[in-house]
Design a protein around this nucleic acid. Structure first.
Lengths: 221, 221
DNA sequence: ACAAAAGTGTTGAGAGTACACCCATGC
DNA sequence: GCATGGGTGTACTCTCAACACTTTTGT
């Protein structure tokens, strides 16, 4: 029996790309330029090439959409219902990326008319089962924020405590007490002071970097 | 462009089946009857059929190996390196199952010479990238035990507290204080008393059932 | 002096951990 | 009465949550 004796499903990777802009948690969606679901919004993604790993396929898609490399990227879940794509049997391996949106250059491609950031609380109707994928991603995102240090990947290299707190407040959609937040972060012993902000018309805040040798799993909130 | 214009990877599901026997955490492995890796131990699995969902494929594999249905089954991670299978491009969607091993009837099949339970601390050399898959599964298993109630799926319907504690001690490979363990479990308010054990030559222990309306995420240890 | 955000300490409640003795049964 | 596992309470520590005022800078 050879591999080609089996009629095989097609495999795509879909990348849920999160960022924070305008003090909101946003996700990148693309408007489809082709059928099926032409003109519907969808999570960016595409077919995995035969000779590239799934991780590489996800990285490639991410770079095609945003021009960014070397960002936080994590596999989430593989969606494999038989009828999830009207073109035929397609399974999709979903990934989540966290990007610092300042540097991003959105691109269009042949299959895509338009790409746009959407507030995760104000999503349009989505193609395929992408609503389900997005809901799953949001849960995982919050989990990751609570138990690991991924939050730092949304910040520039040097940041102030208030910027860090702001990101947590946006993702969890609630306010934290700044004394408790600061105390907790400092007690983790993961930050290094690297200067202060200048030219602000208030007390100059300290700037921090994440220490380089920090282990991944830390309960931050 | 049609789906069939893409040369597609093949898709398998592999099921890491855990149980507790002889006071040890064990995993079910099969000895391969065919090439590649003939006579090597491997995680049970197989090709997903074209018209069955990934979850259904995993359930089918599980039933083929163990004869069991309706057990705890969860998708873990999808392994997609280009060279992970010498036969060609194969990606595998891994699943984890937790079974109560009393009822199990191991079966052999055409592709499999032999199936056997292995202590997770004494594993043989494994085919493909199955070592990596198993290590990942073990991490996830421990995580799930810590933060959810999956542990109960390794127990019979009615159980005593000491049996529950025993399972946690085996999975985490450490002892817990029985006063604290009992206090914690009772404080969660997830158990219902359903009788006592008879015919034991010591103080008869109470039997419990998991309450039916219990929500999933509970930090148990 | 005023506006703006930065920075910082104390207290109380609840959860987790350490620890040892008596109880109910069968033989 | 003895062997076996079952069942239970207290004290300490640590973490989390609530809460408000002073500091530093630019204008």
């Amino acid at each position: 029996m050879k591999l080609t004796d089996y009629k095989q499903p097609s495999v795509t990777t879909d990348i849920v790309i999160f960022t924070i802009r305008e003090d909101e948690l946003k996700v990148l969606l693309v408007k489809r330029g082709i059928e099926p679901f032409k003109d519907k919004w969808a999570i960016p993604g595409g077919f995995a090439k035969f000779n590239e790993s799934l991780d590489d396929a996800a990285k490639r898609e991410l770079e095609e959409e945003t021009g960014m490399k070397d960002v936080y990227l994590e596999q989430l879940y593989t969606f494999g219902k038989v009828d999830r794509d009207p073109r035929g049997r397609v399974i999709t391996v979903s990934y989540m990326a966290l990007v610092n949106s300042d540097k991003i250059n959105l691109k269009a491609s042949t299959d895509v008319k338009e790409a746009k950031w959407f507030n995760v609380k104000k999503l349009p109707s989505l193609a395929f089962d992408h609503k389900e994928i997005l809901e799953y991603s949001l849960k995982r995102l919050k989990w990751k924020f609570e138990y690991t240090l991924v939050g730092f990947s949304l910040l520039p290299d040097k940041f102030r405590i208030s910027e860090l707190q702001n990101i947590y407040e946006i993702v969890f959609d609630k306010k934290f007490d700044k004394r408790n937040f600061s105390k907790k972060v400092h007690s983790l012993n993961i930050l290094k002071e690297v200067g202060i902000v200048k030219d602000v018309n208030f007390r100059p805040p300290k700037l921090y970097k994440l220490k380089s040798n920090v282990s991944e799993i830390v309960n931050i909130i």
